[in-house]
Amino acid sequence: MRFGMVAIAMLISTVASEAVAKVTPYKAAYVVERGGSQYGEASRELTRTEGGLFELATETEISWLFLSDRRRYWSTFVVEDGRIRPQTFAYKRTGTGKNRSFEGFFDRENKAVRALETGATLAIDWREDLLDEASLIEQVSHDMLPLDDGKQQTYQTVDEKGQQDMQTFQRVGIETLRLPYGEVEAVKVSRIRENSTRETDFWFAPELNGVLVKMQQREDGDEVATLLLRSLKSATGY
């Protein structure tokens, strides 16, 4: 059960150029369930400053019996040439077990990712399309919406430990979902893993500007946890 709490928290932690340029602020609230029972909550909020900088904050808070897990991700980024360009990324985990945190920034001038506190260069191969763990979901959403079913896309990321990772996603198709929020049409996207019994699926709703509306993780075919949209405020709701 503890694995399920950690897995869903880590994952919650982000249309080609034209659609990315239409990125708009929103505030989404979710419930986290397993087997139809609720055992946590999550939120994802995207705001934009007057200078055009996007600020993304995600949080999950889960408890089960005597176990607790709270994870927060922060990311700031701009949109250039139709792509998300992260500037800073932070992560903090508290609860049962060991607490962890990481803060880094993308030094584009010197083509490096550095630890925010010390300025030390991290062992990450620089790429202009590098994403962080939080902004990744935003980019996946906007990339997958216009693709044909079956198409895949791979991303290079910096994870919550400040390490480099590679993640591949595939568009599966369109489904009608009945959520606490209401009924929506959503594009299903699966993360592709090799040599793993873990399966993760995401659903993004085109009618809601591509916002993540559902996420589910399974291990050996059994549900680990499911994230469901409960409420949503768009830019007009601020």
Results as ranks from 00 to 15, higher is better:
26 Y>W: 02
39 Y>K: 04
9 A>D: 02
36 G>E: 01
10 M>L: 10
52 G>L: 11
29 A>I: 05
19 A>S: 13
56 L>F: 08
54 F>A: 06
19 A>M: 10
32 V>I: 15
60 T>I: 09
36 G>C: 04
9 A>N: 03
27 K>Y: 03
58 T>I: 03
40 G>I: 03
21 A>L: 04
33 E>I: 00
59 E>P: 00
23 V>A: 15
31 V>A: 10
45 E>I: 09
30 Y>W: 03
32 V>K: 04
40 G>Q: 07
35 G>K: 09
18 E>Q: 09
46 L>A: 11
40 G>D: 08
48 R>V: 13
8 I>L: 02
20 V>S: 09
45 E>T: 14
46 L>G: 07
49 T>H: 06
41 E>W: 04
43 S>W: 09
31 V>I: 11
42 A>Q: 05
11 L>I: 10
17 S>W: 01
45 E>A: 07
63 S>E: 12
14 T>S: 12
15 V>L: 14
31 V>Q: 09
59 E>G: 01
26 Y>S: 03
60 T>W: 05
31 V>H: 08
40 G>V: 05
35 G>N: 14
57 A>G: 09
54 F>Q: 01
42 A>M: 05
20 V>F: 08
52 G>M: 11
8 I>T: 03
61 E>Q: 15
19 A>L: 08
11 L>R: 09
28 A>D: 12
33 E>Q: 07
45 E>F: 02
63 S>N: 09
42 A>W: 01
39 Y>Q: 05
34 R>T: 00
35 G>F: 08
43 S>T: 15
34 R>N: 03
28 A>V: 11
42 A>F: 01
8 I>D: 00
30 Y>A: 10
33 E>S: 04
25 P>Q: 14
14 T>E: 10
49 T>N: 12
18 E>L: 06
34 R>I: 00
32 V>N: 07
19 A>E: 11
38 Q>P: 00
8 I>C: 01
49 T>Q: 09
33 E>Y: 00
57 A>P: 02
11 L>K: 08
48 R>C: 11
34 R>Q: 04
30 Y>K: 05
38 Q>L: 04
56 L>E: 04
56 L>H: 05
59 E>T: 04
12 I>H: 02
42 A>S: 12
43 S>D: 14
10 M>W: 03
50 E>D: 02
51 G>C: 04
